[in-house]
Write a protein that binds this DNA or RNA. Structure first.
Lengths: 237, 237
DNA sequence: CGGAGATTTGACCATTTGGTCAAAAGCAAG
DNA sequence: CTTGCTTTTGACCAAATGGTCAAATCTCCG
């Protein structure tokens, strides 16, 4: 798995105020952002101390403030980067292979990502739970059109009888909810399962959950007959 | 829907230091806890100000501290109450009716609860995301046995071929993830759907998601033939 | 009324914290 | 070495915040 930085802003090296590139491979700014991501995700914005982030990054508080004007600005940097990671991870959903495989791939990628960057996942979750004060507009500007776009694939599948008639947006909400749970609620899951080796056990059990997800969305390889709608008493979509 | 207080600690009225019951219907302590729940869930522990909670409860900060020794103690009260609400809401899963209906009822109850007490849901989520420092032990002591117990119902259903072979604990994780998403990630969902009337739209779309959940877990009214296992390449359970 | 205990409050305090600043290194080029 | 810049730092500050306390107010009851 590539480094979080290279995923998000692949080649963007930090530049001084005059535009001169800084020498070191990972600019101090990057170190700061990485450290801040860790601390913020662990303590939340208000719980995080600038001094602590500085220490984590290996410099003095004053020096950190030299690179990032303020705590709020730093948080903005971090959360926006996390959002980009999240949006990138959305990737695309292959609409040329069979739906079940396409979604299985997507879901697995998402779970892996959440498990690989649990801090990012948690930080994102906290932001949203807190009302997404910083990234709210980004969500409407980027996530919304993405969902609208990919939702069209779902609709096509549905009209072809290869997917249950679940509101596309909500199908995504369902997928995201499940995939993120393993990163965000690790503490709860660990308390319940009592596992001593979280990652291993989760990996083992995850497949079954993914299967359930696929099955629930009624995704199939080919058009089916009676695996779909059933037109329950409840309104669908 | 009953008041949050009566759900959690039904008849337990606050008592003075000498054990004399306080007269007013809702003791000041209850007001404080209710206010604290609101503020904590909105700002998190570190973001919440004691003074603000006091104002929300309609008293002075000093007076609030007279009823609750410290901010941390107040948080403990609040979070434990929220946990109780959550545990109570788990209720039981009827194992005498058909699985699909039993779970549908359970899930709907859970969603309703999350939507009715979004603050509680969010507060709980923040606690867990933060590593459940306060309620960690409670989770292992109460939630874990509950899951072990109810999991047995799932196993019976599975052996009867009335439920897909998903690890029972993870079946719950999946259910909880989906049900809580609508409370915790309201900001994101609102950004994506762009709805102006959240509750109404969510209610409408929720049914489809519940259907998908039921379908995914392979829950049926009666023993089935080929709707289950399929023994995928992936390990289940 | 009088008084004992519960309640309420404004003033106050110690500490923490985000942020500033001037001065002190580094450091590359002339 | 000097000059001019970037980087680094310790000292410092104003504001905020959790918590204390003694005094004031209220309440109930004899």
């Amino acid at each position: 798995m590539p480094d979080i930085q290279s995923i998000v802003w692949p080649g963007q090296s930090q530049a001084g105020t005059d535009g001169k590139a800084v020498g070191s491979r990972t600019s101090p700014r990057e170190h700061i952002i990485a450290a801040a991501t860790r601390i913020f995700s662990r303590k939340g914005y208000d719980g995080a101390r600038v001094d602590e982030i500085a220490r984590e990054a290996g410099l003095s508080k004053a020096n950190l403030l030299y690179y990032c004007k303020s705590k709020k600005a730093l948080y903005r940097l971090v959360i926006e980067r996390v959002l980009n990671l999240w949006l990138d991870a959305l990737g695309d959903i292959a609409d040329d292979v069979n739906p079940a495989e396409a979604i299985r791939t997507y879901v697995n990628r998402k779970i892996e990502l959440s498990r690989y960057y649990p801090e990012a996942s948690r930080l994102f979750a906290m932001e949203v739970i807190g009302g997404a004060p910083v990234i709210g507009t980004h969500l409407t500007n980027h996530l919304r059109p993405w969902v609208a776009d990919k939702g069209r694939v779902f609709e096509r599948w549905q009209s072809e009888g290869r997917m249950a008639r679940v509101d596309p947006a909500h199908a995504f909400f369902m997928i995201w909810a499940v995939t993120q749970t393993y990163a965000d609620f690790e503490a709860q899951i660990q308390a319940v399962t009592g596992t001593s080796n979280y990652d291993a056990d989760i990996y083992a059990a995850t497949d079954g959950v993914v299967d359930a997800l696929i099955r629930g969305l009624g995704l199939t390889d080919a058009p089916v007959r009676e695996n779909i709608p059933k037109k329950q008493t409840s309104r669908v979509n």
